[in-house]
């Protein structure tokens, strides 16, 4: 059966890169004795696919990967995995996916982020009065640097929610493969709109959740498509 696993990554673990996190989970599957399926061939590997890489330094409360499980219950998989997690890694849910559900990566439509000042950094843009004006513009054009040249890009259709208070930005933005945007692009542009600028490395990004569209074309968390087992 296809199983979707949601996990959090925080604390010192934010410095571990995506490839190492994949290797970490492969080891945890064996250490926790999870009955995961292997591919066939001369060097079989665990059938496991991640929704999206998480950049080094980013914290997340909503990462996902799918595995092919041969036996076990949601509770047993979750408990045994949590019993082998290191500090800063936590399994949040284990759900079985009904047939026909697209894999985690292909399902992603949007992501929710919180972005705030890192500890010890001076607050930069403190103007939270212009959020409505910012969002009410017809276009929110930014200049995107591509390999060859600079192009104008409209953020507006990709921002689904955006708020700013107490030095924390919260947003729900496009994370689909065709139109994903970066949370820092949004706050940089907001700062520009307020007549100031920000230093990206001063911000801690927290990915809160990934969303997909359900049958009614409503955005729901990636785990909502699965069921208990």
């Amino acid at each position: 059966m296809k199983v979707r696993i949601k996990f959090a990554k925080y604390g010192v673990m934010r410095y571990i890169g995506h490839l190492d996190i994949m290797r970490y989970f492969q080891k945890c599957m064996r250490k926790a004795d999870v009955d995961i399926a292997y591919s066939s061939g001369f060097s079989p590997h665990q059938i496991m696919s991640f929704a999206s890489p998480l950049g080094v330094g980013v914290i997340s409360n909503g990462e996902y990967f799918d595995i092919e499980l041969k036996s076990g219950s949601a509770k047993s998989v979750m408990d045994s995995l949590n019993s082998v997690m290191v500090n800063g890694m936590e399994i949040l849910s284990v759900k079985k996916l009904p047939d026909g559900v697209k894999n985690a990566m292909a399902s992603i439509a949007a992501a929710r982020y919180t972005v705030m000042m890192k500890e010890g950094c001076e607050p930069e843009n403190t103007d939270d009065s212009k959020v409505d004006d910012f969002l009410n513009r017809e276009h929110i054009n930014i200049i995107k640097q591509t390999k060859k040249n600079e192009i104008e890009f409209d953020l507006k259709p990709h921002i689904y929610e955006f708020s700013f208070d107490k030095n924390a930005y919260r947003m729900l933005i496009d994370a689909s493969s065709s139109g994903n945007i970066k949370p820092l692009s949004v706050i940089e542009e907001y700062a520009r709109f307020c007549g100031t600028h920000i230093t990206p490395s001063n911000y801690q990004i927290i990915r809160e959740e990934f969303y997909t569209y359900d049958d009614d074309h409503k955005l729901v968390p990636l785990e909502a498509l699965g069921e208990d087992f």
Binding site: V12, M13, I16, Y24, K31, V84
Partner: peptide, 9 residues
Amino acid sequence: PARYIGNEI
């Protein structure tokens, strides 16, 4: 940075 943070299994 993983060289310097400890916390390994």
